[in-house]
Computed example of a mutant assay.
Amino acid sequence: MRHLRVLCAIADAGSLHRAARELGMAQPSLSTQLRRIEQTLGGRLFTRGRTGSRPTPLGHIVVSRARPLVAELAAIVAETRAAAARAADGPRLRIGATASRALPGWLRLLRARVPAVEPSLQMDVSANALLRMVAEGRLDLAFVHEVEGSPLRVPAGLCLRVLVEREPQFVTLAADHPAAARREVRLADLAGDRWMVDSTVDGEWDALCRMLRRAGIEPDLLHGDYLTAYSLAAIGEVVTVSQPTARPRPDLAIRPLEGDPIGVRLLLAARTVAELDESCPELEEAYWEAARQSPAYQEWLRRGTTSTGWSPAHRGPGDDQRVLASGR
């Protein structure tokens, strides 16, 4: 790696003299080192003249391959040093999560309750990966969603608490889409639309396919992250699923789907019930704080409570699920 750093420095500086100065070494030593590298690789990497040093065709190939490796190593060193510094500052609560509007409020409430313990956040599109990290001791908590019809692979021994038993998934479409005029969107109104979904999110691609095929729609699906999906939905190129807590935008309409055909279960995972007890109240408060900021979700909740008596699942310590060696 030291040799690769030397080659990048020479290519960037344009001369052995300037590269040696930047590397903090004498020019004769750098020249000797470059000759050894060239002997090892079997060809000249730089042409040297009065105007400086320029990469040869072989040098261009080697330097282009070296740059990302050198940059990655520098990033690893920086991140490791930062992690070590944080560890030295005091205890941390290591949280993993899939995407949720509740996260900023949760972190804020945790910091307010226990200022001495700094929460750290690691995001991942894979709920299964986050659960494995909790089981392996690399995270203390994981806030994840389980897509209906695609059960998570929960490692043995984890404790789970259900925040919401079934959160409906809404549809996001352009504000001027004909279906946006409806209070609830029928899948039949979207039969001619192309959908975009992030297939890296555990279960979401399969769930969307199942939902559309049950409605008699052969899905026209595109893979993409949800930031891109929202941008394309705003100009009418696609429609996409969204969490009901998504905040409104003037160029987008966020609507419930008629019959709530797709849903997720929101779970908090830890290795002990005590860890759940310490963090779940703040998460629950943060979630419903985010829900209050979504007019579409608030209207859905009012309709559901009035017509069916629906209410979110609130579970105490006695309702936790402990996953044993035999499975879920």
Rank of each mutant, 00 (worst) to 15 (best):
R94D: 05
I95P: 00
I95E: 00
I95H: 00
G96N: 06
A97G: 04
A97Q: 05
A97F: 06
A97E: 06
A97M: 08
T98A: 09
A99K: 07
S100P: 11
S100D: 02
R101T: 10
R101S: 05
R101N: 08
R101E: 07
A102W: 00
A102K: 01
A102Q: 00
A102P: 06
L103F: 01
P104Q: 06
P104V: 09
W106C: 05
W106A: 02
R108M: 06
R108V: 01
R108T: 06
R108G: 06
L109I: 00
L109H: 11
L110Y: 05
L110R: 12
L110G: 02
L110W: 02
L110A: 08
R111M: 12
R111G: 06
A112F: 11
A112V: 07
V114S: 14
V114K: 09
V114P: 02
V114G: 04
P115F: 07
P115W: 05
P115T: 14
A116E: 14
A116W: 11
A116D: 12
A116Q: 13
A116K: 13
V117L: 10
V117A: 12
P119M: 15
P119W: 13
S120D: 02
S120P: 00
S120N: 00
L121P: 00
D124H: 14
D124L: 03
D124C: 13
V125E: 06
V125C: 04
S126E: 08
S126R: 03
A127Q: 03
A127C: 08
N128R: 04
N128D: 15
N128P: 07
A129C: 12
A129P: 10
L130R: 01
L130Y: 02
L130G: 03
L131P: 03
L131G: 04
